[in-house]
Computed example of a mutant assay.
Amino acid sequence: MNVGSTAPAAVSTPLLEDFSLEMTGKDVARLEEAATAIPRGTRINVTFLGNEDLTMRLAAARAVKRLGFVPVPHISARRLGSQRQFEDFLAGLRSDGTCDNVFVVGGDPHRPEGPYDDSLSLIRTGLLQRYGVHHVGISGYPEGHPAIPGGVLWSALGLKDSELAERGLSGGITTQFAFDVDPVLAWIEAVRERGITLPVRIGVPGPAGVRRLMSYAARFGVGAGASVAKKYGLSLTGLMGTAGPDRFLRALADGYEPGRHGEVKVHFYTFGGLRATSEWVTGFRKEALA
């Protein structure tokens, strides 16, 4: 991690204000360990993995709230086996006071396990607002999706934007992480040209081992060729090393124009390293303000 480098003040304002983090249901102990390094009120997404159950997901959301943060539970459409399972989760969130914010996503299974094929179908049920949800996060894919054609992605994004507005739900877009700023900013500009004004949180990999970063990139279809990796600061010949997103954030600050890109913030994918990511962000912000 290149924490000792000089960063421009623009990085911290406004891009690193109100950043968000991601955790899994199994990361509660890691969150407790990292809590003192995370600003109170930080939005923390809780993923909806296939190897975690309702009890674990609800407990993680409760822990986020208990520690002074804003829980954003994920709901994976294709992992829901029935409407009853969907409502049980929403009812549990409402009972715990953790239902204000959710993030809806299609999910990994190739075939739906129940009646919901994608995140749009969850929004269209009307169940989100019935159970007290006020803000809905949706996904964005600046570099595309390995299993979904680009035209389908754009159509779905527009439909979700319209559906949220019609139902009186506020929303935001969180993108898949990337190693190259240029296609991300170009994608956001294309979003704005389509009349979509939802705030965008740009997905950024937290500091992690190079091998782990490359593994996740391959899994999610993120472009990580040799030239892109070098631009980000990854050494494909030094897979045992670690890398942080300092170069990415500097390039983002240089290219970001509020008039063209609208409201943009940063979302860190922590890969289980909640404390490492939080401390890295704290150090980077201090440098940016120095």
Rank of each mutant, 00 (worst) to 15 (best):
A288D: 11
I202E: 00
A7T: 14
Y256D: 07
M23Q: 10
R62W: 04
I75L: 08
H74N: 01
G107S: 09
H110I: 13
D53A: 11
L21H: 12
D161G: 03
L236C: 01
R201K: 14
T242S: 12
N51T: 11
A10E: 15
F284A: 07
I123T: 07
E257D: 14
Y141Q: 00
V210M: 02
T197W: 02
F103S: 07
A77V: 02
A243K: 00
E22P: 10
N45M: 09
Y216V: 15
V210L: 02
L234C: 00
G255F: 00
N101R: 06
V136C: 06
A61P: 04
H267C: 01
Y256T: 07
M23W: 04
F179I: 04
R247C: 08
A7W: 09
R84E: 15
L274R: 03
H267E: 05
G97R: 12
G81E: 12
D246S: 12
I138Q: 00
L58W: 10
A60W: 10
A290N: 12
D53K: 11
G223H: 13
A156S: 15
A10I: 05
F248S: 03
N45I: 07
L169T: 00
S121A: 15
I44E: 04
A224M: 07
R192D: 10
A186M: 07
G107N: 08
Y216S: 10
K26E: 14
A288K: 09
H135K: 13
A217K: 03
L236E: 02
R84W: 08
E87F: 06
G233R: 00
G223A: 13
L252W: 00
K231Y: 05
S162F: 02
G81M: 03
D254L: 10
T36W: 06
